[in-house]
């Protein structure tokens, strides 16, 4: 350990060549992290450029806050620890606002909301299932909704469901379908590849992100109702450090403005084809 620190003293010399971060109190410059692998929320173009709803929204929000924005990519499974380590100031990566996450970080927003849904292989038994309800509100589970969950649990017995690691969908599986085998992936795209390959029987994700994969893969289809709230949280927000309450206020104001002037609805139409804004 001592040796590491000593070695890092050398690193410190290197780091002089590295920019000292902007003054944190003014927020004239804000670093925003996204995943770049969760279309249509955020993705990486073949040119290497980050694109997507959240990338455009981040630029709009920064314009409204008169801040200079730097948008960078960060793998999902380290996105919260790296925020806490100060590698950036804001997370905009399709991250739902949940009680667990609120224990370690804070959120501005929500700026959008999308239900969670399953995808599976066309023609499979799962794809043939029919449900009485189109949506299930997990905050207040009524008897009819419980029946749907029970039916799903039965249908998925002995099957494997893929989710992205440390997501609300992983929590959903652990809490509501604990007896179903779950496999966690670094990105939802990887789960998608394994679903096509037949290593998975189903995949659970944010509906729009799952649909984006289903659209590109002929062999896949969505199935089951849309799930919202409860373990799935209260919409997608911008994650930030708990101590940065001034930044939270600024971001909330900018999000409210973007909601009011139709910016979010417009970007949403452009990337999702429908309105995901929170009214």
């Amino acid at each position: 350990m001592k040796k590491t620190v000593a070695a890092l003293a050398f690193g410190a010399i290197l780091a002089i060549a590295v920019s000292p971060a902007a003054a944190q109190d003014k927020w004239s410059k804000i670093r925003i992290a996204t995943e770049g692998a969760y279309a249509p929320w955020n993705a990486t173009a073949p040119s290497g450029e980050l694109i997507g709803f959240e990338v455009d929204l981040a630029r709009e929000l920064c314009r409204k806050m008169n801040a200079e924005c730097q948008i960078l990519a960060q793998d999902w499974d380290g996105i919260i620890p790296a925020l806490q380590q100060g590698k950036y100031d804001v997370i905009m990566a399709g991250m739902s606002i949940t009680d667990e996450r609120k224990q370690v970080i804070d959120f501005a927003g929500p700026y959008g909301s999308e239900p969670t849904a399953f995808a599976t292989i066309k023609g499979s038994a799962l794809a043939g299932m029919t449900f009485d309800l189109k949506g299930v509100d997990l905050a207040t589970v009524e008897p009819q909704e419980q029946q749907i969950l029970d039916a799903l649990a039965k249908a998925l017995e002995g099957k494997t469901v893929g989710v992205q690691t440390s997501t609300i969908q992983a929590n959903f599986m652990e809490r509501l379908l604990p007896q179903v085998r779950m496999r966690t992936y670094g990105t939802l795209d990887e789960a998608g590849i394994d679903l096509v390959n037949g290593r998975l029987d189903a995949m659970l994700g944010d509906r729009s992100a799952a649909q984006e994969i289903v659209k590109k893969e002929e062999s896949l289809t969505m199935f089951g109702p849309n799930f919202v709230r409860g373990v799935l949280g209260e919409g997608v927000g911008a994650g930030l450090r708990q101590r940065d309450q001034d930044l939270k206020a600024k971001l909330n104001a900018a999000i409210a403005e973007a909601n009011g002037d139709g910016t979010i609805a417009r970007l949403s139409e452009q990337w999702f084809g429908y309105d995901i804004s929170v009214k």
Partner: peptide
């Protein structure tokens, strides 16, 4: 990756620099 900045900042503090150091 997760600790680099923190360690550099700790070293920087020894030398009297108190700000935030970003290590890319």
């Amino acid at each position: 990756f997760f600790g680099g900045s923190g360690m550099v900042m700790a070293v920087a503090r020894v030398f009297g620099y108190d700000g935030y150091v970003e290590v890319n």
